[in-house]
Design a protein around this nucleic acid. Sequence first.
DNA 1: GCGAACGTTCAGAAATTTCTGAAGGCTGGA
DNA 2: TCCAGCCTTCAGAAATTTCTGAACGTTCGC
Lengths: 156, 156
Amino acid sequence: MTGETARREAAEHLALTLVGAGMQRMGARALAAFLFSDKESLTAGDLADELGVSAGSVSGAVKMIVQMGLIERIHVAGSRREHFRMRDNAWTTLYSRQHSVVDDVLTAVEKGVEAVGPGLALERLAYMRDFYTFLLNEAPMLVERFEQQRRGGSRP
Amino acid sequence: MTGETARREAAEHLALTLVGAGMQRMGARALAAFLFSDKESLTAGDLADELGVSAGSVSGAVKMIVQMGLIERIHVAGSRREHFRMRDNAWTTLYSRQHSVVDDVLTAVEKGVEAVGPGLALERLAYMRDFYTFLLNEAPMLVERFEQQRRGGSRP
DNA sequence: GCGAACGTTCAGAAATTTCTGAAGGCTGGA
DNA sequence: TCCAGCCTTCAGAAATTTCTGAACGTTCGC
């Protein structure tokens, strides 16, 4: 029967899991609310009601997930409120963003490579650098491949 | 000249970056200490000295990164202390582990798909499910490809 | 222009995470 | 068996993160 309660429960469960994956609590809850809503867009007030938190908290959470590129601000004619909606490419965007964190790590490793002389440390650092460089190169292709597959089905 | 100070600085910088990527502070510092050491293995005492922290902290940090599969406990004949060393496949392991987090998220999403009726939410959830399923399938192949490339050089 | 509804910011409270230091247990040699 | 060194555990302190609520801008209808 997919009741309202089940829906909320599933949403909260996903939020919890995202927190486990490193996301901030309120951001995760807000994101889940978007995912599980059948509306095209939500206002800050809608979120506050749905999640049962203060307007301030919603403001912070929304700010964060907008910055992550997962939702966007839209203006709805005839409504005074600000509306937000999930972006179509939210998940591929999120994936790419995570790789910008990888990029930071890579930069730090490269500094390390320059800072140490020959030896075991250099070998380890070089290996790490190679692996993360590889990942960074491959990631865009992966996303590309997914989108292709989703659009067209099998390639020639 | 790659002095000792530069080495430590680079190590601390990498640790900080890893923290930014979601790792716990002390675990990250310990990991960086292993990476940047020219020794084959380190003892808990070595780490405490290098990082300037209590034995208790080291114990916790080591426990964590052992569990992550990044270092391993080894017994050195003639030494009473426990030695730890980085595992060869540390980075590919770490990458795979991160994908087990993805697996948790995927499970939660699938529950969501079952909990909602037809509508926008179902579409969004299904899209998310498809993307993460795709990633989970591709990840092992990526790692495989990296190792192949590293072993063999260019493919025919 | 005025007023009201909305959203944002920020200081402080609350909760959570992280580190330490002391106490205790295990291991190997004498 | 006893001792000494090393590691782990755990309760509490310290630091950090997270949430709230009130005050302040902004914008739109009138």
